[in-house]
Design a protein around this nucleic acid. Structure first.
Length: 494
RNA sequence: GGCCUUAUCGUCUAACGGUUAGGACAUCGGCUUUUCAAGCCGGUAAUCCGGGUUCGAUUCCCGGUAGGGUCACCA
């Protein structure tokens, strides 16, 4: 904590390009960003690409894309450079080698004399005995010279119980079992994460290391490495996991954690995502729920991050997304809706070029995300805006009625005719929902609201569920409204 | 199995050791609307268990229980 106030905060987000970036990583990035910004600090983006086998082409670009989408910016990174360049670990191999040699000189690193299968045997045996596997129990008495063909291992300088302070989890400690002779440099010449992230954090003068809580049990290893290197460790900040929807397992790629960009494609606004992610494991000192990034930076306190894992909650995300959708400027709302209206509907569009702008408000009332628009389209809840409704004579008019069975079609026809004549009196330019309602209202009261309003609504939409007939009439316009009413009458008379 | 760690409504969470345990999402009900949605109003719903410490524990301590993490030439 002292470090926050005394030293300029330098922190980093350090993903591995091993696939898409899921929302768990994204939250880590967000909290890292917030911590940096809150303290007027520096955020470094570092690409940890030392596992050449798992590396996925294009993953780095993908990560950058996700971060930019969400509105996270960094002060130094592979794309923009900086004082500590390069920011991709595979370009920093000489540095790790230098540190490795230093450790060899101190007598704290040695080549692993065993073959992979031999180590595998040790591990299996430990497993059978239900004991933790500790390589140091197999440490050779004398160290060979390292020729780079064998993995280089760290020799734990001193077996002791480490105590440290985590900004989220508080005072932590670990037993001797947490300490082991881990691999520094693999036989392919690349360093392990355990080693090179420490080297980079030292070289880049990182003051705060933020990462998931799965690293807690490894921290004693890092502490022993810092000690071996005679460097003070940074402040550690471990984040609780995001749990899957079942609330049991941590959210990971294997358990179906989604690519962050999928949320973008599904129509979640970046602001909503930021807001949701921020609240998933962190809480302000008051009950505020909706935050802009700026407000988040203002309010963010690491101390208020939760210790226990939070379950992913689509309902809440949807709610937040809706809140942001409602606040969007009209122009952007229209673009949003337009984007999700399926092609086939746009192609049907016959009578009004500006239809999307007109239906935007009523669509926004009914959706939580872009997927919902696609869903509505699938359920024909939108079709009638773009093409002629497909009437079902027998399904609809029945619903209205207290009208006697024998001549109900005739009666309904007369109602519709009267409706048309009333609407015809409205001037084209005044044909809006208020005027339509005012014109029809007293008549509908007289006859029975349902008997007038229901058939009218159905005549305009052709479906059971739709917005009210007044707004429908406004959107369709006078001509089309009367057209459709006439069509309905024709059908009734068949 | 060892080590580490966590525990408040279904979910996310708030609460200097003293509150009718608060808010939000979800859910349920009402109003509105003869459809759907939205909106407004209201309701149901929680301190894991057992011991301490204390005049008083959600809060502090210990033990249990349950959950999570980790024990790689992955990060």
């Amino acid at each position: 904590m002292e470090n926050i106030t005394k030293k300029k905060v330098v922190t980093r987000f350090a993903p591995s390009p091993t696939g898409f970036m899921h929302v768990g990583n994204l939250r880590t990035a967000l909290y890292t960003y917030l911590l940096a910004k809150k303290n007027n600090g520096t955020l470094i983006l570092r690409i940890e690409d030392t596992d050449k086998e798992r590396e996925v082409a294009g993953a780095t670009e993908h990560i950058l894309k996700v971060l930019k989408w969400i509105g996270i910016s960094w002060d130094e990174g592979p794309d923009i450079g900086g004082l500590n360049a390069p920011y991709t670990q595979s370009e920093r191999l000489d540095l790790y080698k230098k540190y490795a040699e230093k450790l060899i000189k101190y007598g704290l690193a040695y080549p692993d004399p065993y073959s992979e299968s031999e180590v595998e045997e040790f591990r299996k045996k430990a497993d059978e005995e239900k004991k933790p596997f500790l390589f140091r129990e197999h440490r050779p008495m004398t160290f060979e010279k390292w020729d780079g063909t064998k993995p280089l291992r760290f020799k734990v300088p001193e077996l002791k119980v480490y105590h440290w302070h985590d900004l989220v989890f508080g005072n932590l400690s670990a037993g001797h079992e947490a300490l082991d002779d881990f691999v520094l440099i693999k036989s392919d010449g690349y360093p392990t994460y355990n080693f090179c992230h420490v080297v980079d954090d030292i070289e880049m003068k990182i003051t705060h290391v933020i990462r998931g809580q799965e690293y807690i049990s490894s921290i004693p290893k890092y502490l022993s490495l810092y000690e071996g290197l005679h460097v003070d460790p940074p402040v550690f900040v471990c984040l609780p996991h995001i749990m899957g929807k079942d609330g049991i397992k941590k959210l990971g790629k294997r358990d179906g954690a989604k690519d962050s960009l999928e949320y973008k494609e599904d129509g979640y606004l970046p602001e909503a995502m930021v807001n949701f992610l921020a609240l998933l494991g962190w809480h302000p000192s008051d009950d505020k729920e909706i935050f802009t990034m700026k407000e988040l930076i203002e309010a963010f306190e690491v101390e208020r991050i939760q210790k226990s894992g939070a379950q992913w909650n689509d309902d809440k995300l949807n709610w937040i997304n809706r809140e942001y959708l409602k606040k969007l400027p009209t122009k952007e709302q229209e673009e949003y809706v337009e984007k999700f209206i399926p092609r086939n509907l746009k192609d049907l569009h016959e009578y009004n070029r500006n239809i999307i702008n007109k239906i935007t408000p009523i669509i926004l009332e009914r959706i939580k995300n872009g997927k919902d628009i696609i869903e509505m389209a699938k359920n024909a809840e939108l079709t009638y805006f773009f093409g002629k409704p497909n009437y079902q004579k027998d399904s609809l008019f029945f619903k209205s009625s207290k009208i006697s069975q024998e001549n109900k079609y005739e009666i309904l026809s007369s109602y519709l005719e009267k409706t048309i004549s009333l609407l015809s009196n409205i001037k084209d330019s005044d044909f809006n929902k208020e005027n339509v309602k005012n014109t029809i209202w007293s008549y509908s009261e007289e006859v029975g609201r349902g008997d007038i309003l229901w058939p009218m609504r159905y005549a305009l939409s052709g479906v059971d569920k739709s917005p009210d007939p007044f707004i429908l009439a406004e959107i369709l316009g006078k001509e089309e409204t009367i057209n459709r009413l006439n069509t309905a009458i024709k059908i009734l008379k068949i």
